[in-house]
Amino acid sequence: MILLQIDVGTLLIILLIIMLIATVIPNLLSGEEKEKNVRPKIFTEISCVNNDYSETREYVPGDYVGKILQDRKCPKCGSQLYIKGIYSVYPEERKKESVFT
């Protein structure tokens, strides 16, 4: 019971200190929200010119869309294979950006 008998003055001082802390701390805590340097994984989609076969593998430097693969042939019909598309996939985290879609 004795501990609770704080007079008005002390109470005000405590209040002042609390207010001071409450204003300063958020300022100190709100450091730079730095963006993590997330690199996407890049894939290459390979397709047959006759459109009967396709596969996806990891991107290899030198790949470009429309490149005809010289060293391979379509396992189904034996015609030329070409690179149909190159795209990247980000780790899950980044997708949270779009909440309303």
């Binding site: 690199r39 397709s47 991107y59 470009y64 869309v65 429309g66 030329q80 598309g85």
Partner: peptide, 25 residues
């Protein structure tokens, strides 16, 4: 910097890519 130094298509390459898909070879 990354895609342009590697030569990887970017989002803006969508237009040329559509054309490339229509006549790949």
């Amino acid at each position: 910097v990354e895609p342009f130094s590697k030569g990887v298509p970017v989002g803006d390459s969508a237009g040329p890519m559509v054309v490339s898909l229509l006549a790949p070879t």
